[in-house]
């Protein structure tokens, strides 16, 4: 009969939880990279703007403005919504498409919005947009990560284990966030 070994159990748990969480790790990692740079780009959508010129629209009555804008833009399908934020602007909303007409000049801005495939879904999960059950799953994942971090330190023994060079890597990995925070908070 095999003797019970804590280290063996640790390795098995580390390995199997690793398999279980690999998809989540990729989702959170990729999305983390994407949303870290939110100041520089939109990680969820591709937005494009183009401009067209139509004749100025002098009508003031809502339905007439809408009909005239649609006629000049060659739109036959009824928009999802029509809105005038001010007397000089008319907006026609279609799925992922907005026409903003500057009535006195006839300048039209056409804005398209397209979801970034896969990345949008990853970001929604990472930022816990769905809430509800996903909160519980994300909590479980967070606990698993803590376990993976701790259990990872006890997989190997000897020179490459925690008692050997491993302790220096752990130290460096701890100094980076703690040191950065001290610099950010008190020294800069």
């Amino acid at each position: 009969m095999k003797q019970f070994s804590w280290r063996r159990l640790n390795i098995v748990l580390h390995r199997d939880i690793g398999y279980l969480t690999v998809a989540m790790l990729i989702i959170y990692g990729v999305s983390g990279l994407a949303v870290n740079h939110i100041e520089d780009w939109n990680p969820n959508f591709i937005r494009e703007k183009r401009f067209e010129q139509i004749e100025p629209i002098t009508a003031t009555e809502r339905d007439t403005v809408k009909a005239e804008a649609m006629r000049q833009l060659g739109l036959t399908e009824e928009p999802r919504n029509f809105f005038r934020p001010d007397p000089e602007t008319a907006q026609l909303f279609y799925e992922n498409l907005t026409y903003s007409v500057d009535l006195p000049t006839g300048n039209v801005m056409i804005e398209t919005t397209q979801r970034r495939m896969v990345l949008f879904e990853m970001n929604q999960l990472h930022l816990n947009a769905p809430k509800g059950v996903w909160t519980f799953i994300a909590d479980l994942f967070a606990v698993s990560l803590i376990f993976m971090g701790i259990s990872g330190m006890f997989i190997l023994k000897g020179k490459t284990g925690l008692a050997g060079r491993g302790k220096w890597f752990v130290l460096i990995g701890t100094v980076i966030p703690v040191g950065y925070w001290i610099w950010y908070q008190y020294l800069q």
């Binding site: 939109n42 969820n44 999802r80 919504n81 809105f83 934020p85 001010d86 007397p87 799925e95 930022l127």
Partner: peptide, 25 residues
Amino acid sequence: KEFESIRFKVDDGVIVFPLDLKGSN
């Protein structure tokens, strides 16, 4: 009424409204 709108603001992260909701009711 025409020429009027109101902003519906949520705390960051509490609700994330996707950009493509524009035009929906």
